[in-house]
Computed example of a mutant assay.
Amino acid sequence: MTRKLGGKLVIATHNAGKLKEIGTLLAPYGIDCISAGALGLPEPAETGTTFVANALIKARAAAEASGLCALADDSGLSVAALDGRPGVYTADWAERQWFEGEPGRDWHMAMGKVEGQLQALGPDAPRHAWFSCVLALAWPDGETAVYEGRVDGTLTWPPRGTMGFGYDPVFVLDGENRTFAEMDPAEKHARSHRADAFARLVADQFGR
């Protein structure tokens, strides 16, 4: 049986927005969340080749450094016709090269890379894609638990909507005609890959 969460939990992130989002989701269960950034913990190199591996790297590093249970996530977009790319390199595809302007992430450029590779395959290339999210829990003694969420859909072009981020403007959830970026954020979050993963975590950890 998986060990149950309780008390303080380190969220393995330096992103204040992600801490707030996860903290809000876990607040009803009496979990007190603090970020790895607030504790001054270093960010480990994400050297894994799968979402599970990278989530575990981050969770284990935070648990070992803090002496507390830690939660990390890793997520991204996979495109069937591109053999699952960008996958774990989802964010890397948005990183600007030295000749592409100031350092940082350009998600419109990243969406363009995906579309360009699909168009290179021809007009009949399948456009099936899915978002994945892996949540990993790690305790200081080495015990871990992993929860995987996924939503499937189709890629569209050109991008539509202004309410999302990342690849949301080109992703249409199966059974929908709106992109994630055209949905109200609350609706999108309730139907997303992260929501799916969190539902699995909550069911296992809190029995709901």
Results as ranks from 00 to 15, higher is better:
residue 54 N to D: 02
residue 46 E to I: 14
residue 42 P to S: 09
residue 137 L to W: 03
residue 79 V to G: 02
residue 148 E to G: 06
residue 10 V to H: 03
residue 49 T to C: 11
residue 65 A to D: 00
residue 113 K to D: 00
residue 96 R to C: 09
residue 178 R to F: 15
residue 107 W to R: 00
residue 43 E to A: 13
residue 159 P to G: 03
residue 166 G to W: 08
residue 47 T to M: 08
residue 81 A to K: 07
residue 143 E to V: 06
residue 32 D to R: 15
residue 180 F to R: 01
residue 48 G to H: 12
residue 60 R to K: 15
residue 184 D to W: 11
residue 101 G to H: 10
residue 32 D to P: 01
residue 166 G to S: 05
residue 158 P to S: 04
residue 186 A to N: 07
residue 170 V to N: 05
residue 173 L to N: 06
residue 54 N to I: 06
residue 20 K to Q: 14
residue 2 T to G: 01
residue 24 T to K: 11
residue 117 Q to M: 13
residue 32 D to N: 15
residue 75 S to F: 10
residue 54 N to C: 06
residue 1 M to V: 09
residue 154 T to V: 15
residue 73 D to C: 07
residue 204 D to E: 14
residue 50 T to V: 07
residue 116 G to N: 07
residue 41 L to W: 15
residue 197 A to H: 07
residue 33 C to R: 09
residue 125 A to E: 07
residue 12 A to H: 06
residue 58 K to M: 03
residue 6 G to T: 12
residue 80 A to D: 14
residue 144 T to F: 09
residue 65 A to L: 09
residue 19 L to F: 09
residue 18 K to V: 04
residue 165 F to H: 02
residue 187 E to D: 13
residue 21 E to F: 14
residue 188 K to V: 03
residue 114 V to R: 00
residue 135 L to W: 11
residue 77 L to W: 12
residue 115 E to Y: 08
residue 131 F to K: 04
residue 174 D to N: 15
residue 64 E to A: 07
residue 66 S to F: 12
residue 131 F to S: 00
residue 138 A to Y: 13
residue 64 E to P: 00
residue 23 G to R: 12
residue 77 L to C: 02
residue 185 P to G: 08
residue 105 R to G: 01
residue 122 G to R: 00
residue 82 L to F: 13
residue 113 K to P: 00
residue 156 T to G: 00
residue 174 D to A: 14
residue 185 P to M: 01
residue 54 N to M: 10
residue 36 A to E: 00
residue 137 L to N: 05
residue 177 N to S: 14
residue 191 R to D: 00
residue 194 R to K: 14
residue 196 D to N: 15
residue 16 A to M: 04
residue 35 S to V: 06
residue 204 D to C: 15
residue 110 A to T: 04
residue 191 R to T: 05
residue 119 Q to E: 11
residue 8 K to M: 04
residue 186 A to H: 13
